[in-house]
Nucleic acid binder design. Structure first.
Length: 275
DNA sequence: AGTGTATCCTGCAGGC
DNA sequence: TGCCTGCAGGATACAC
């Protein structure tokens, strides 16, 4: 569900209400979303104060006193919500009672999400396994080209691999490839320098626009206040199989590989490399 | 080493 | 109405 723009929106929405709050009580209602024993998970959080709320890839990173870090990955349907009378969790998995109202709840229908308490060092090591932040100033087109050149996998699959680039998921991978006129199944290493420049600009553009629109809500995604995002109307190919391409009116195609759907315009994104 | 497939889980939409 | 199938924004354990 949530990709970089959705997680960024949630993080921004959590900051004000969470920084300087202390965690008083943790109730694990669904142990399978917690990656450690519920007792040690709770013990690692209880009594600690929130110092920062940041994002790394698709992870929400809550930095706490005593060198603890709560890392939340939302999976497909996870939400991290301030629990107010108007915002009710439908599938609460973990509840956090703070020193002030409102409390915080991790809600997740499918329970593919995960929560974990780490030390700062453990988190730093984990973070090294993630690729660069696509919106970072140091992420250049030439860096992207170098990384693409190392992989023979389909470029859409390349985007989804968090070790290569952090935070991109299926929606924005497909959108960026459409903007760059690159077929989703083309080998990553077949993307040439000129195409990489366009693709680099495209992924950053797509992610920035989605952040401005507060994320894409297709079904489940909500921000920390329970509000949906407004980016769905900005999507050009994702989920539009059978509908006309917005550039050329050719039918948008759906193709399944790597267990995920890819959406593309066969005319705007020919499979044969133009390289 | 790198890549593709199967699996975790629930809910919803569409076909019959 | 109900039953069935397919599908979903993610990550990961495995087989090759």
């Amino acid at each position: 569900m949530p990709e970089l723009p959705e997680v960024e929106t949630i993080v921004r929405g959590l900051r004000d209400g969470l920084v300087d709050r202390s965690i008083q009580r943790v109730r694990v209602l669904r142990p399978d979303v917690v990656r450690q024993k519920p007792r040690s998970f709770s013990a690692g959080l209880r009594g600690r104060t929130v110092e920062r709320v940041t994002r790394r890839g698709k992870n929400i990173v809550v930095s706490l006193s005593d060198d603890r870090v709560l890392v939340v990955n939302l999976g497909m349907t996870g939400r991290l919500l301030f629990s107010t009378p108007t915002v009710r969790a439908t599938h609460p998995a973990v509840r956090f009672t703070l020193d002030q109202e409102p409390s915080l709840v991790f809600d997740d229908v499918r329970r593919f999400g995960s929560l974990e308490v780490l030390t700062g060092k453990e988190w730093a090591r984990r973070s090294e396994d993630l690729g660069p932040e696509p919106l970072g100033t140091e992420y250049t087109a030439s860096r992207m080209l170098t990384d693409l050149a190392r992989s023979a996998s389909p470029v859409r699959s390349w985007f989804l691999d968090q070790r290569r680039i952090a935070g991109v998921g299926n929606i924005y991978a497909n959108e960026a490839l459409f903007l760059a006129a690159i077929h989703p199944r083309r080998p990553a290493k077949s993307v040439n320098a000129a195409e990489a420049r366009v693709l680099h600009r495209a992924i950053r553009q797509v992610l920035r626009t989605a952040i401005e629109n507060r994320g894409t809500t297709l079904r489940d995604y909500r921000d920390a206040s329970g509000s949906p995002g407004e980016n769905a109307g900005a999507l050009r190919v994702y989920g539009r199989a059978g509908q006309p391409c917005l550039s050329c009116s050719t039918e948008v195609q759906r193709l399944v590989f790597g267990n995920r759907s890819a959406f593309f315009c066969p005319r705007c994104q020919p499979e044969t490399d133009t390289a």
